[in-house]
C-alpha cells in the first residue's frame, strides 16, 4: 500500500500522515514515512521531536556532501538516509531548504 497525502497548507496533511504511519506500524506493518516537502515537518507529527526534526539529515544533503556513496536502490536510500521514528516507522526526508539559492 502506498499512500500520498495532499491538500492546502494548514489543513492537517502532516498530522494525518504522521498519525496514519504510526497506526499502521502498530498493526505490524513495516512503514516508510516519506517527507517530500522542502519545508519538512513530518518528524514533528511522528514524534521525533521538533528540534530533532529541524536537524534531520536529508537524502539531498546526504548525496551533496559526497561522504556517502550514492545508493542505487530504494532500500539503500531508506537505510542510509532514513531515521528511526517511534513504533518502528522509518522516516526519510527528501530535501530541506535551509539557505538562499547560491545561483
Amino acid at each position: 500500500m502506498k499512500i500520498a497525502v495532499a491538500g492546502k497548507g494548514g489543513v492537517g496533511k502532516t498530522t494525518i500522515s504522521g498519525t496514519l504511519a504510526r497506526h499502521l506500524a502498530r498493526t505490524g506493518m513495516p512503514v516508510i514515512a516519506l517527507d517530500c516537502d522542502t519545508n519538512p515537518m513530518l518528524g514533528v507529527s511522528l514524534g521525533v521531536g521538533p528540534e530533532e526534526t529541524d536537524r534531520l539529515g536529508t537524502v539531498r544533503q546526504g548525496l551533496d556532501t559526497g561522504e556517502v556513496e550514492h545508493q542505487p536502490t530504494t532500500q539503500g536510500i531508506v537505510e542510509t538516509f532514513g531515521t528511526d521514528a517511534p513504533d518502528g516507522v522509518r522516516l526519510v526526508v527528501v530535501s530541506r531548504i535551509d539557505n538562499i539559492d547560491p545561483g
Binding site: N39, M41, V44, S45, P50, D54, I100
Partner: peptide, 18 residues
C-alpha cells in the same frame, strides 16, 4: 505551534542572508 515556529525560524534565517 512547533511546525509554524520552525518554518518561521527557517524563513527568518534565510531572509537575513540577504
Amino acid at each position: 505551534t512547533w511546525q509554524s515556529i520552525l518554518t518561521a525560524r527557517r524563513i527568518a534565517r534565510i531572509s537575513r542572508q540577504r
